[in-house]
């Protein structure tokens, strides 16, 4: 059964996509790595970003972490605070 996740976008990624949140269709049991693959397909310009991490429920996530539609997911481009 297919589902989708909502992904928060910040900084350069928000600028590149023109959106601060997007909905990404994902099959049940998909993980962080698959989400990133799907996003790169959908937005080829993401290839120009130096690195992209994924946060799930406010924590940096491993590529193998499985996602659910209830998770708060965010794409984290290179940080530059301070």
């Amino acid at each position: 059964m297919d589902s989708s996740v909502s992904v928060l976008l910040f900084g350069i990624v928000r600028d590149l996509t023109g959106q601060s949140a997007i909905s990404v269709p994902l099959h049940e049991g998909a993980n962080v790595e698959e989400l990133l693959g799907r996003l790169h397909q959908q937005y080829p310009s993401l290839a120009g970003v130096r690195s992209l991490l994924v946060a799930v429920n406010g924590e940096y996530a491993e590529p193998t972490q499985v996602l659910t539609s209830r998770d708060e997911i965010a794409l984290i481009p290179p940080v530059s605070g301070g």
Partner: peptide, 17 residues
């Protein structure tokens, strides 16, 4: 996860991006 954009007189850039 904090990001800064430098706005120059002739353009702008997300730092480290």
């Amino acid at each position: 996860p904090i990001w800064k954009k430098e706005v120059f007189t002739d353009g702008e850039e997300w730092v480290n991006a």
